[in-house]
Amino acid sequence: TSIVNVSSSLNVRSSASTSSKVIGSLSGNTKVTIVGEEGAFYKIEYKGSHGYVAKEYI
């Protein structure tokens, strides 16, 4: 489990790309479970499925 480190919110994306669809967002200090990594993104558990967040904010 890791913590989201942002002051406002962090986009959760459908794939490991800044141009991919935003499927949701997480607020600062939210706990997330990392299940993998791809480039500059972590794959996380998100709403019963998976999403991707930028590593620099975790």
Results as ranks from 00 to 15, higher is better:
residue 30 T to F: 09
residue 44 I to N: 00
residue 2 S to H: 15
residue 58 I to P: 04
residue 42 Y to K: 01
residue 16 A to W: 04
residue 49 S to D: 08
residue 11 N to R: 11
residue 13 R to I: 07
residue 5 N to V: 14
residue 9 S to Q: 11
residue 48 G to D: 08
residue 27 S to P: 15
residue 6 V to C: 15
residue 21 K to V: 10
residue 43 K to H: 03
residue 39 G to N: 06
residue 58 I to C: 05
residue 10 L to C: 15
residue 49 S to V: 10
residue 48 G to C: 07
residue 34 I to Y: 02
residue 52 Y to M: 00
residue 39 G to S: 04
residue 56 E to Q: 11
residue 34 I to W: 03
residue 32 V to I: 12
residue 1 T to H: 14
residue 24 G to V: 03
residue 11 N to L: 15
residue 2 S to A: 15
residue 19 S to P: 05
residue 54 A to V: 09
residue 28 G to I: 14
residue 31 K to H: 11
residue 50 H to L: 09
residue 47 K to S: 07
residue 57 Y to L: 10
residue 55 K to N: 02
residue 56 E to W: 08
residue 23 I to C: 05
residue 5 N to Y: 09
residue 26 L to C: 03
residue 15 S to R: 09
residue 23 I to Q: 02
residue 14 S to I: 14
residue 7 S to F: 09
residue 22 V to W: 04
residue 40 A to K: 10
residue 19 S to A: 12
residue 15 S to G: 12
residue 30 T to P: 04
residue 17 S to M: 07
residue 37 E to C: 08
residue 9 S to C: 15
residue 2 S to F: 14
residue 9 S to G: 12
residue 12 V to F: 02
residue 35 V to Q: 05
residue 17 S to E: 07
residue 12 V to Q: 00
residue 16 A to L: 03
residue 29 N to D: 09
residue 52 Y to S: 00
residue 41 F to W: 13
residue 5 N to M: 11
residue 57 Y to I: 06
residue 44 I to T: 00
residue 30 T to I: 08
residue 18 T to C: 15
residue 46 Y to E: 01
residue 10 L to I: 15
residue 52 Y to P: 00
residue 40 A to P: 09
residue 39 G to R: 04
residue 54 A to H: 09
residue 12 V to W: 01
residue 25 S to N: 10
residue 3 I to M: 12
residue 14 S to Q: 15
residue 57 Y to T: 08
residue 15 S to V: 05
residue 3 I to T: 11
residue 35 V to I: 14
residue 54 A to S: 09
residue 5 N to I: 15
residue 57 Y to V: 08
residue 10 L to M: 08
residue 18 T to Y: 15
residue 54 A to T: 07
residue 38 E to W: 06
residue 22 V to S: 06
residue 32 V to N: 01
residue 36 G to D: 06
residue 8 S to G: 15
residue 9 S to E: 11
residue 19 S to I: 08
residue 42 Y to P: 00
residue 4 V to H: 08
residue 38 E to T: 07
residue 47 K to R: 10
residue 38 E to R: 05
residue 53 V to M: 03
residue 55 K to H: 03
residue 29 N to Q: 10
residue 50 H to I: 14
residue 32 V to D: 00
residue 7 S to R: 06
residue 51 G to V: 03
residue 25 S to T: 15
residue 56 E to Y: 09
residue 17 S to F: 05
residue 9 S to T: 13
residue 50 H to K: 04
residue 11 N to M: 14
residue 28 G to E: 11
residue 22 V to Y: 06
residue 14 S to H: 11
residue 46 Y to N: 01
residue 44 I to S: 02
residue 1 T to R: 04
residue 35 V to A: 04
residue 53 V to F: 02
residue 9 S to N: 11
residue 45 E to A: 09
residue 24 G to Q: 02
residue 53 V to R: 00
residue 21 K to C: 11
residue 27 S to H: 10
residue 8 S to V: 14
residue 33 T to H: 09
residue 43 K to D: 01
residue 41 F to N: 01
residue 35 V to R: 04
residue 44 I to E: 00
residue 53 V to G: 02
residue 45 E to H: 07
residue 26 L to V: 08
residue 57 Y to S: 12
residue 5 N to T: 14
residue 38 E to S: 07
residue 33 T to V: 14
residue 37 E to V: 09
residue 23 I to G: 00
residue 48 G to A: 06
residue 34 I to R: 01
residue 11 N to G: 07
residue 38 E to V: 09
residue 38 E to N: 06
residue 55 K to A: 04
residue 41 F to K: 00
residue 39 G to W: 04
residue 36 G to T: 04
residue 9 S to W: 13
residue 23 I to F: 03
residue 23 I to W: 02
residue 6 V to Y: 05
residue 49 S to P: 01
residue 42 Y to R: 00
residue 1 T to G: 12
residue 39 G to V: 03
residue 8 S to T: 14
residue 21 K to P: 15
residue 38 E to H: 07
residue 26 L to Q: 02
residue 6 V to K: 08
residue 44 I to Y: 00
residue 29 N to I: 08
residue 6 V to L: 11
residue 30 T to Q: 12
residue 19 S to H: 11
residue 26 L to M: 06
residue 30 T to V: 10
residue 21 K to I: 10
residue 56 E to T: 08
residue 17 S to N: 10
residue 41 F to P: 00
residue 44 I to D: 00
residue 39 G to K: 05
residue 51 G to A: 08
residue 49 S to G: 15
residue 39 G to M: 04
residue 42 Y to A: 03
residue 2 S to G: 15
residue 33 T to L: 09
residue 26 L to E: 01
residue 52 Y to T: 00
residue 41 F to I: 01
residue 3 I to S: 09
residue 31 K to G: 06
residue 15 S to K: 10
residue 31 K to V: 14
residue 49 S to C: 09
residue 2 S to V: 15
residue 38 E to M: 07
residue 22 V to K: 05
residue 11 N to E: 15
residue 3 I to P: 06
residue 46 Y to D: 00
residue 49 S to R: 10
residue 55 K to Y: 03
residue 40 A to W: 06
residue 50 H to N: 06
residue 40 A to L: 11
residue 43 K to S: 03
residue 23 I to P: 01
residue 53 V to H: 01
residue 29 N to P: 10
residue 21 K to L: 10
residue 11 N to T: 14
residue 47 K to N: 14
residue 3 I to V: 12
residue 17 S to W: 04
residue 55 K to L: 03
residue 25 S to I: 15
residue 42 Y to Q: 01
residue 33 T to M: 09
residue 34 I to N: 01
residue 21 K to E: 13
residue 41 F to D: 02
residue 9 S to Y: 12
residue 35 V to F: 05
residue 39 G to F: 04
residue 12 V to S: 02
residue 20 S to K: 02
residue 45 E to M: 11
residue 5 N to H: 12
residue 26 L to H: 02
residue 35 V to M: 08
residue 50 H to F: 15
residue 22 V to T: 06
residue 56 E to D: 09
residue 41 F to R: 00
residue 16 A to F: 03
residue 30 T to G: 06
residue 5 N to K: 08
residue 47 K to E: 11
residue 52 Y to Q: 00
residue 30 T to S: 11
residue 12 V to E: 01
residue 20 S to F: 06
residue 26 L to R: 00
residue 31 K to L: 14
residue 22 V to L: 07
residue 10 L to H: 06
residue 4 V to P: 07
residue 15 S to A: 13
residue 6 V to Q: 08
residue 55 K to C: 03
residue 32 V to S: 01
residue 41 F to M: 03
residue 29 N to V: 08
residue 20 S to Q: 02
residue 53 V to S: 01
residue 16 A to K: 02
residue 45 E to W: 09
residue 58 I to K: 04
residue 7 S to V: 12
residue 42 Y to S: 01
residue 43 K to L: 08
residue 2 S to R: 08
residue 4 V to Y: 06
residue 39 G to T: 03
residue 43 K to I: 13
residue 8 S to L: 11
residue 37 E to A: 07
residue 22 V to R: 04
residue 22 V to F: 06
residue 54 A to Y: 12
residue 48 G to N: 09
residue 54 A to L: 15
residue 27 S to R: 13
residue 30 T to N: 07
residue 2 S to D: 08
residue 32 V to C: 05
